[in-house]
Design a protein around this nucleic acid. Sequence first.
DNA 1: TATTTTTCAGTTGCGCACAATTGAATTGTA
DNA 2: TACAATTCAATTGTGCGCAACTGAAAAATA
Lengths: 150, 150
Amino acid sequence: MMSAQGDPLKLDSMLCFAVYAAGHAFTRFYKPRLEALGLTYPQYLVFLVLWETDGLTVKALGDRLFLDSGTITPLVKRLESRGLLERRRGQDDERQVHIVLTDAGRALREQALAVPLAVGTALAGEREAVDTLREGLHRLRVQLDGGPGA
Amino acid sequence: MMSAQGDPLKLDSMLCFAVYAAGHAFTRFYKPRLEALGLTYPQYLVFLVLWETDGLTVKALGDRLFLDSGTITPLVKRLESRGLLERRRGQDDERQVHIVLTDAGRALREQALAVPLAVGTALAGEREAVDTLREGLHRLRVQLDGGPGA
DNA sequence: TATTTTTCAGTTGCGCACAATTGAATTGTA
DNA sequence: TACAATTCAATTGTGCGCAACTGAAAAATA
């Protein structure tokens, strides 16, 4: 009941802005922790994927993170120039480029463990709410992308 | 129970990525609707604020949207060059610049009403879940920003 | 009042994000 | 087998987002 809003354009009633603002808050929260690793947040996401599955192509990496080659390519080039990963042209399919971690890139994982720990501390005692939120956000994404059928 | 995760760095277990991905989904969803208005999403947010409270300073606008002058200044300059708003140096305080809508800027509001309508359609029958999500995201933002005391 | 500190908008530099395009490689089809 | 359509990574251009800095104005303090 009473979910009807007087002004349909009221900023604080908009789910999109709640998502946008929470994203900002995460960025602010992560910034000092990721600076210790020398990574930006999108770079951190790339490593999260590669630590799970090394050797993915630019395309597969982009699909996982909802990013395209226009974002991935320069990002991994910066990481390559720092010796954290390598870009290898596919042998079977020469259109593809595989992203492969170096020893330094793999070693970064140990330090990265501190990041989710810090999140856990900041959200201590909210584990259940966090799980609910994550599931709700997942359903939201699916709905906005056109439902399960799209 | 069972909220403990085997791998603390697992991408799909991370709330930050759920927020990040939902943000992407909103951006994709809004894009065609906002193109009809000739606005980007951050520009749309600026108008949402100004339609509620016209004449805010750059600082006040930024506080509302969690953005700083480095983002707001060029954004409103682009909107000013299109005749949608004006920037007026404060008379009482000459450091400030007030952002004031033009007739064209106010007129845009009518077309903008279609945007939340489209969201409502896409999320039809989820009103309760949407309210829950928005509140959860708000609490998350407050927690990440250091709690209610910070 | 004089001086220090703070606040504000603006600028620069770097990195993300995406649309549009290019060119090479692959796949599908005639 | 030819050739058309698709896929892939890369590039270009525009706009957001933030840190760091500048210079002017205002506020706080001595």
